[in-house]
């Protein structure tokens, strides 16, 4: 299903889907924006209430529909809903990576990190490094 990294042209700009959370990681991502901290504009987010509510098949779906990587900006320990949010989200990410493997997509295309409400700088770093990593992997393409 996935072609090798060689398919990446010079101008390849990986698209990243970010699953963020409304009360925690979005606040951090907003802070990056209001501080004018630049990160690749191909990163775009879908906000959810909590990162423990992400369905692994959404991740597969996104990678099958034009995105080259999915980044889960998890609530971490600040989660207002569940104290073990990090563990729960990590489990989902695990499941999703297995799902990607089954579908012949490199699990490296999925990355998770806790982004707290003041984590602007770390979010920016994550975006840049993930962008670079995905550049190496090349684009995901649906078979056929």
């Amino acid at each position: 299903m996935e072609k090798g990294g060689g398919a990446a042209g010079e101008g390849f700009r990986p698209r990243i889907l970010v699953f963020s959370t409304e009360s925690i990681s979005d606040i951090g991502i907003d802070l990056a924006g209001s501080s004018h901290m630049h990160y690749p504009p191909t990163a775009i987010s879908i906000p959810l209430p909590c990162s423990s509510g992400i369905r692994p098949d959404w991740i597969l779906y996104a990678l099958g529909h034009g995105f080259d990587g999915v980044f889960v900006a998890a609530d971490g320990t600040d989660c207002p809903f569940v104290p073990d949010c990090t563990g729960r989200t990590a489990k989902l990410v695990d499941q999703a990576q297995n799902l990607l493997r089954e579908n012949d997509i490199k699990p490296e295309r999925l990355k998770m990190a806790a982004v707290c409400s003041v984590c602007a700088e770390s979010f920016q770093k994550h975006m840049k490094s993930f962008f670079d990593a995905l550049k190496g992997l090349g684009p995901t393409r649906k078979a056929g």
Binding site: D26, I29, D30, L31, A32, G33, S34, H36, M37, H38, Y39, P41, T42, I44, S45
Partner: peptide, 18 residues
């Protein structure tokens, strides 16, 4: 604003696409 124009002040063209 927070997740597009302010975050990509360096690349207005790409910001518009996003």
């Amino acid at each position: 604003r927070e997740q597009c124009s302010w975050a990509h002040t360096d690349v207005p063209e790409k910001a518009t696409e996003k």
